[in-house]
Design a protein around this nucleic acid. Structure first.
Lengths: 338, 338
DNA sequence: ATTAAAAGAGTAAACGTTTACGTAAAACGC
DNA sequence: GCGTTTTACGTAAACGTTTACTCTTTTAAT
């Protein structure tokens, strides 16, 4: 077995209390004994048992993170940020892949409860009442990332999706586009779906550009296939469209692929702007101009806020809107010089 | 505080031992008391404390996973598989992002040791002696994924990279290509670098095709930029190249982008085959033909093997070569019909 | 020199479980 | 109906820590 504090105490001829104090940097011993104990620790290769510590301290130095899709491109970058913040603060992170299933989510939440995690990060999903109840039962801080809840009072870290969509659309307008379409996400999705649609619409209206249902196609998801399938539909509705705002990068790239297949040149004949700035937004051809969500930063920030809440350094949780930027690549062309 | 087993015992008027037995499905009580206790559990909302359990059982039902790059596209799919297998077996997974740093790796290993994880999955990196020593100290099973160790006896789950590269090259040859180049990975990388280079070379030789240093460019990494920068170099070395084998999908797509910029048509003037089958291999244009590593499966398999080892169901760890396939998309053209 | 305060260290309880052991009652065998 | 086994529990130790409390011994203050 691994050596315990008792072994160290025996080896150094002191009590376990003294060893504990030295290990934890508490006062109450002479330099001499400190040295003796440290030598004992070294000699035995002692490692404190975090489980025993957790039992008595009621602190596990562990947080749980729930994603609807761990391997998704959004999730993985957020995860990196969270992991980073956690690690810096001496916490470990347990990942949970809820697969957007309520059952699985609850199961995971229960598991995290049994494991006595110190806090939870909940990403990219809407918070159901069922979940919220468990949060309360658990009595640990929770922070939302890339989502928010109108119903429940939980701190969040996200970008303002309305603003992002608004600005993306304005960007197209600024570049001289007048006939602009959008491939939108689910209309029942309060996080990414509704606000982006709204931002698009209001930007058009602000600039007195035509807007009707014809300008929008609703896809069932945010994936490549959705974009690929939606572009032809949208094109039929809005034949003289010169620019497209896609609800996500994957959708944008799907649309781009569809355009290639239809022989439509991007950006000469059709400009496309995406949303997310996933890693491969720069890898497609032409490089995708897109609204950049600072995913890693968001994860990091969420992690930091959670840690502060756990440590009790902050009582009231501050939510944070993270800044987005429009990163310009080659998928939008400027019509003004024509 | 959360209710404990004592509270349940008191509520149900039995001893904690009885509650424990019931909770754990051990024999030794009447149906009557079982009902009483279950009601008590229900009424109090009792959840067993996994920390206390871990302390006495010396089992945490937790595994640690180390990645050089959590948010990398390879890692995230492997992670999903691991997480899946772990969850199915009732284990949680702690993710660690080593950032390919020895220091960080050791730090994480120590952390996992303190947290008393039951096993470790180590991904995509070479196992240094320093790490191996800690593995031994920890006395927990370890399984490697997407890597292997010649030096140390550790079970692995991976594809045969030599074979994969060989077959990829043969695929190009079968399609009538004779002048084939490769953008290779690091020559000091025993996992992905050396075997893929070797596979390429031997395939050419087997089919009596010309081969010299000119057919290869070595890039410093496996990323998009590496591919983008390497293509022009390779093209200078091998001007009449008709097909390219890229050491990774990112490199392949980088090369594809470079080709676009140089006005070289893919696949008409240059065929490209990649390696990995990342999610966005199908999202670029033209769709990338590539060697598919079953990343999620690999993670899942590694997870399953680890769990078996932890449970002691298997004594000797079996390593596994996973099957790769070549997924055909549009980036390779068939020269035989010409 | 006397007393008070501080420093150095030990003892033991507590955290929430599991489980070996003990014991009384019930069930069984004949 | 008696001894024996089985069933149904309860008691208490153990897991590896932290920490409140106690007790000496040293240091400081007057």
């Amino acid at each position: 077995m691994n050596p315990t504090i008792k072994d160290v105490a025996k080896y150094a001829n002191v009590s376990i209390a003294t060893v504990s104090r030295i290990v934890n940097g508490l006062p109450g011993y002479s330099e001499d004994t400190k040295k003796k104990v440290q030598e004992a620790i070294e000699a035995l290769g002692y490692q404190p048992n975090a489980i025993a510590r957790g039992l008595i301290n009621k602190r596990t130095q562990t947080i749980g993170v729930l994603f609807p899709d761990v391997s998704g491109m959004l999730s993985s970058e957020v995860l990196e940020g969270v992991e980073n913040a956690a690690h810096d603060a001496g916490f470990s992170v347990i990942v949970c892949n809820t697969a957007s299933s309520g059952k699985r989510t609850v199961k995971y939440l229960r598991l995290l409860q049994e494991k006595r995690v110190d806090g939870i990060i909940f990403a990219s999903e809407v918070v159901k009442e069922e979940y919220y109840k468990i949060f309360q039962e658990m009595k640990v801080p929770v922070v939302l990332v890339s989502t928010a809840s109108s119903e429940f009072d939980l701190p969040f870290v996200r970008v303002n999706d309305f603003e992002g969509a608004f600005r993306a659309t304005e960007y197209l307008i600024t570049n001289g586009h007048k006939m602009i379409g959008m491939i939108g996400g689910k209309t029942n999705d309060p996080i990414a779906g509704i606000p982006r649609l709204k931002g698009f619409k209001e930007a058009l209206q602000k600039h007195s550009l035509p807007y009707s249902e014809k300008h929008i196609t609703i896809s069932e998801g945010y994936r490549f296939q959705n974009g690929k399938e939606s572009l032809p539909v949208l094109l039929k509705q809005l034949p003289n469209m010169t620019a497209l705002f896609a609800v996500s990068d994957e959708v944008a790239i799907g649309a781009m692929t569809a355009a290639h297949q239809l022989g439509i040149k991007v950006p000469e004949e059709l400009s496309i702007i995406g949303y997310d700035n996933l890693k491969f937004a720069e890898m497609c051809y032409p490089g995708l101009t897109t609204v950049s969500q600072p995913l890693k930063d968001m994860g990091q920030t969420a992690g930091e806020i959670l840690v502060k809440l756990i440590k009790g350094e902050e009582k009231e949780a501050e939510s944070r809107f993270m800044p987005f930027t429009i990163v310009e690549r080659q998928s939008v062309c400027d019509l003004r010089n024509k």
